[in-house]
């Protein structure tokens, strides 16, 4: 349990670090990826709604603490996103390797849009609708491009830290 929590904490810290340093330079049409959304979605898709919501809350809160914006909006967004993606796991029956990429793209676009709506309602976001939609779609595209590279890595780290089941005969 502790090993697993530490592994997830390490993934989250690395994601925040990369997002604020390397990926702030490597922008796609002016937009950077949202790695914490990607991590939450991949873990939720792999582990289910319980862990998805938990990881989403911790990831969102970590990002919120570092932002100079009202704290809690990302935590709320990623909690619900992790739960929703985790629930959708039981309805996905296709064995296609493209599944994580498609889910990450759709879930990121929905998550960013939800964040924008909540931030708008709290008076923290007043960009025109075209900019809001463009940001959500481009971020979703960037996250989708990164998924085939990062998703197997995240899965391997999380599964590697899973306690081994001992079978006694």
């Amino acid at each position: 349990m502790i090993r697993r929590s530490l592994a997830i904490a390490a993934i989250l810290i690395t994601a925040i670090l990369l997002q604020s340093t390397i990926f702030s330079q490597l922008r796609l049409l002016g937009v950077r990826p949202e790695l914490l959304y990607l991590v939450t979605i991949v873990i939720a898709l792999n582990e289910g709604p319980n862990e998805g919501a938990m990881v989403g809350f911790i990831a969102g809160l970590s990002e919120d603490l570092l932002l100079n914006q009202p704290k809690g909006i990302t935590a709320l967004t990623l909690t619900l996103l992790g739960y929703a993606v985790g629930l959708s796991k039981q309805y996905i029956v296709s064995p296609s390797p493209l599944v994580p990429t498609v889910v990450v793209a759709i879930a990121t676009a929905v998550g960013i849009s939800f964040y924008e709506v909540v931030a708008f309602l709290l008076g923290q976001f007043d960009a025109p609708l075209s900019i809001a939609v463009r940001t959500a779609l481009l971020t979703a595209l960037y996250n989708a491009v990164l998924t085939p590279i990062l998703a197997p890595l995240i899965r391997r780290i999380v599964e590697g830290a899973r306690p081994r089941r001992v079978v006694r005969l």
């Binding site: 604020s20 340093t21 330079q25 949202e34 932002l67 960013i112 924008e116 976001f125 940001t135």
Partner: peptide, 11 residues
């Protein structure tokens, strides 16, 4: 040392 954390963070 860092260029903000998200697409909505201009710090």
């Amino acid at each position: 040392i860092s260029n903000g954390y998200t697409n909505f963070d201009y710090t």
